[in-house]
Design a binder for these strands. Structure first.
Lengths: 150, 150
DNA sequence: TTATTAAAAGACACAGAAGTCCTTTAATAA
DNA sequence: TTATTAAAGGACTTCTGTGTCTTTTAATAA
């Protein structure tokens, strides 16, 4: 559905919201290793998130990434928009140039329902929601390490 | 959602089911032009569909592509499987290696519902269903040409 | 002030999807 | 039988997403 970059960005944002504070920031290396993402590539993505003011960064000793706003103010759709754009939510399921209620593809009506539901979900869900779920122990953003028991 | 190849394949299959018969086959060129798809690339995809027995082909004069089975016997999921595989329907929405009911990502439950509904839809829907919709005038598989009024 | 640390930035490499081109194979019409 | 037609097949190019590497910039600790 989304690009790897976008998936990485979503997970990294949640991870930073979980673990970092202004006084205890997280480095690219830490984030990348914990989330099992190639380090330099993670750097690129964090850079993009920083430029778009989704996360904050500080250079130098004790530098790193953190959030200075409330995770509840960052919607997932915003992160998706920055990394992948919103084309997924507007484009045709069969890849047709023009696909609308007046010139629909055969999949249009069914597909629209699903896209709209997903749109609502990502519009409504915030980084804080995911943090809550992860910290509550009901979900995970770190890959299962080899041999780990759930 | 699906690759371009897969979208092209779905539309071409429906188009062939609409227009071709054993006595009046369609050439790569015709299909590609009507559906606004690069001709040699369309050739590759039709070749793949033929190998997988989704459509049939005949070489030589008056040759081309047609269906020798009922369109109702070709499910969309089968075409998708041949072109893209079924990974979309099994993989994690956040791209995690392991994402299951016992080790879910924060998106898992919501995303699962979405994927399962789509799976059912593509499993249930056949080429004949789309042909019916297109021939009944309630949907389209050809791109809107410039200036065309719906 | 200087050395150290860590992100920013940009150039580069690689792989797979998308698209093109040319030759071969096979079917049919003359 | 031969010429023609159209798909099959393979090599190739292009583009984009993914991933790597090196240098620069900026912040802080000593």
């Amino acid at each position: 559905m989304f690009s790897k970059s976008c998936n990485y960005a979503l997970r990294a944002s949640v991870f930073i919201a979980c673990k970092a504070t202004k006084d205890s920031k997280l480095s690219i290396k830490t984030i990348a290793e914990e989330l099992d993402i190639p380090t330099p590539y993670m750097g690129k993505i964090l850079q993009k998130l920083t430029k778009n003011n989704i996360i904050q960064s500080v250079k130098g000793p004790n530098g790193g990434f953190y959030l200075n706003k409330n995770g509840a103010d960052i919607t997932l759709i915003h992160i998706i928009e920055v990394l992948d754009g919103l084309e997924f939510f507007t484009s045709c399921g069969l890849g047709m140039k023009e696909c609308s209620d007046t010139h629909p593809c055969p999949l249009h009506d069914d597909y629209k329902v699903f896209k709209d539901h997903l749109w609502d979900l990502f519009k409504r869900t915030t980084v804080a929601d995911f943090v809550g779920s992860v910290q509550g122990g009901s979900s995970f953003i770190k890959n299962l390490s080899f041999g780990q028991k759930v």
